[in-house]
């Protein structure tokens, strides 16, 4: 059967110009109201979140009873080069970034590409706590109670197709809000890009965090939404994400592009694969002090081997570092 569109529209049905203009104004006005609404429902750093505790989680590895790194230290000791390369720079300057409004695009090899706004990011998914070890490639580590949801939960909503083999993440690129991106002496090609293989992305331990210590993330910790992959070095856990793109090709990540002999795509925590800057055999568990440096041995996959080692079966971890 052929369906022919009717072209016989009576002129009385056609909207006159002034009414059409009114409609525009109405839409504009309602858009403004929606914006106002969204800023009212989005939460800024420090506001409390409702979540399920980590201790009762059914996910293996979601909880550890190790001593937590104090919140004050989690907030003041950060690597977030968008705000400077000093450890205190992010805490000092991340307030220059606004997280409201915020949009996170999910696109690429998905059936339903779309955009999440701040309120969807913070309240669109069930929040749960995860207490993870965080191991930085610089050989220090923390234990942090994150609040968020598995990346898999978010990805499923956008329905990845069968061509989606990798996930590429991107941080906000705005030199007006991020002074590190204005540095003339930086060799980083902004924006910051990270990536995961799809099976890594879908792993139940891979978290999108929107909070920490029961509160909305402080800006310097990657507000409003950041990745946390506890078995990989910290630089994989990209902050302040604005884009998640599913692709068929392995993304070229920022550190890999800068120094491929130092930073691999996988970047799994591995005391057996040494780094030309820092020995990876041990780590300083923070807080560390002069008299008690608190050096502990580093574990393969940061101690999450039981949960993730199968992802890398048959791979030479010295080659795919």
């Amino acid at each position: 059967m052929l369906i022919k569109p009717s072209v016989d529209i009576p002129s009385s049905e056609i909207t006159n110009h002034s009414a059409w203009l009114n409609r525009r104004q109405f839409l504009g006005a309602s858009a403004v109201m929606m914006l106002a609404n969204s800023s009212a429902s989005g939460l800024d750093a420090g506001q409390p979140l409702k979540f399920r505790g980590a201790a009762g989680s059914a996910v293996a590895g979601a909880y550890t009873d190790e001593i937590l790194t104090p919140f004050a230290d989690v907030k003041r000791y950060n690597n977030f080069y968008e705000f400077g390369t000093g450890k205190g720079d992010p805490a000092r300057y991340a307030g220059e970034m606004s997280i409201d409004p915020w949009s996170l695009r999910v696109e690429g090899e998905v059936a339903k590409p779309g955009v999440l706004h701040l309120e969807d990011i913070q309240a669109g998914f069930d929040l749960e706590e995860r207490i993870y070890r965080l191991r930085c490639v610089e050989a220090w580590s923390m234990v942090v109670p994150w609040i968020g949801y598995p990346l898999a939960n978010l990805l499923q909503r956008f329905q990845p197709n069968s061509r989606a083999r990798y996930v590429q993440f991107q941080t906000l690129h705005d030199h007006r809000q991020m002074r590190g991106q204005r540095s003339f002496t930086s060799s980083i090609d902004w924006p910051y890009v990270e990536g995961l293989r799809i099976d890594e992305a879908m792993h139940p331990l891979t978290l999108l965090a929107v909070g920490v210590y029961g509160e909305v993330l402080p800006h310097q910790n990657g507000a409003p939404i950041r990745l946390v992959v506890p078995w990989k070095y910290g630089f994989k856990s990209i902050k302040s994400i604005v884009s998640i793109r599913l692709t068929g090709k392995r993304p070229k990540t920022t550190w890999e592009s800068l120094a491929p002999q130092e930073y691999g795509f996988y970047a799994n925590v591995n005391p057996g694969v040494d780094h030309p800057r820092w020995s990876q055999k041990t780590e300083r568990r923070l807080p560390s002090s002069f008299f008690e440096p608190n050096r502990i041995p580093t574990q393969l996959f940061n101690g999450y081997g039981e949960q993730v080692a199968h992802l890398y079966q048959g791979m030479d971890l010295r080659r795919y570092y």
């Binding site: 230290d73 000791y77 220090w140 300083r284 923070l286 807080p287 560390s288 002090s289 002069f290 440096p293």
Partner: peptide, 9 residues
């Protein structure tokens, strides 16, 4: 103890 959580650095 005024050097922060990681005095080594």
């Amino acid at each position: 103890q005024r050097l922060g959580p990681d005095p080594a650095e």
